[in-house]
């Protein structure tokens, strides 16, 4: 049974139809890379999975739980799903440690000591154990993004969503974030990531999903997809992405 299952998902903003009948099954422990042109609906798809956007039709099921727009369901669901954004969205008024432990104490009702132990573990995992007392503004973009990943990991999610998490970073800083993500993939984390890093997708993803005009246009393992793209749209996308 897939851990994330979308069937017949539709989403529109007013008269603009952004997702048109999207169905996708993500197996436990796999990495799915969503690629496609700007505006093709990648972020929207990701945001529907943890209920940040309300879908107009179809169904999304995560770990056996239907994504519905009521507070109790969403709260429970979001503990199972981590999401990392392009703009990090760390809480600037809190230390790195408090960023990581806030939800642990509020949502999981953990003690300060339990929270601290988890914060140390996840921060070490992303290579930032020494920044536990820092404030976000004292960190580089790459470090902030790794804290954001640690903050999600602290909740022990079953699925992690990444929306272009390296797009705002300089090339040298991209690498450190991608390395952390690759480590997660190796440890068996189920990941759905929107990315423009084609090399990364090729290397790490089990499945590449090409979105075009609100639909899944082409999909398959990177070894096949990148070597012999079936549709002209995807072929064109790859050649423009590489240049």
């Amino acid at each position: 049974m897939a851990i994330v299952n979308l069937s017949g998902v539709r989403k529109s903003y007013g008269s603009l139809s952004v997702l048109k009948d999207v169905s996708l099954a993500v197996e436990r422990g796999t990495v799915v890379a969503l690629v496609g042109r700007s505006g093709s609906g990648k972020s929207t798809l990701l945001r529907c999975i943890n209920g940040l956007e309300r879908i107009n039709a179809g169904e999304i099921v995560v770990d056996g739980r239907r994504v519905e727009q009521n507070e109790a369901t969403l709260r429970a669901l979001r503990q199972e799903i981590g999401i990392v954004f392009q703009s990090y969205n760390l809480f600037p008024h809190l230390t790195v440690e408090r960023n990581v432990t806030l939800a642990l104490s509020l949502v999981k009702k953990m003690s300060t000591a339990e929270g601290h132990a988890i914060a140390e573990r996840v921060l070490n995992q992303v290579g930032l154990g020494d920044k536990i007392g820092a404030y976000p503004e004292q960190l580089s973009g790459g470090q902030q993004q790794r804290v954001a990943i640690a903050r999600s990991l602290a909740m022990s999610p079953k699925v992690m969503l990444f929306d272009e998490v390296t797009s705002a970073l300089d090339p040298e800083l991209k690498e450190e974030v991608l390395r952390v993500m690759e480590g997660l993939a190796r440890e068996g984390m189920t990941m759905i990531l929107v990315t423009h890093e084609m090399d990364f997708a090729r290397r790490v993803a089990n499945e590449v999903v090409f979105m075009h005009q609100g639909k899944i246009h082409e999909q398959g393992p990177p070894s096949r997809l990148f070597v012999e793209p079936a549709t002209p749209e995807f072929r064109q996308f790859i050649s423009s992405a590489i240049n």
Binding site: R78, G82, N89, F91, H93, L102, A148
Partner: peptide
């Protein structure tokens, strides 16, 4: 920024927790 609400919501915080721990402390300043 809307991203502050979204990342707090994504961590499972309730609306009141988001306001009390994330949004209002920043808005006060």
């Amino acid at each position: 920024p809307k991203g502050q609400w979204e990342s707090a919501a994504s961590l499972g915080l309730s609306r009141f927790e988001m306001l009390g721990y994330v949004i209002i402390p920043q808005a006060l300043r």
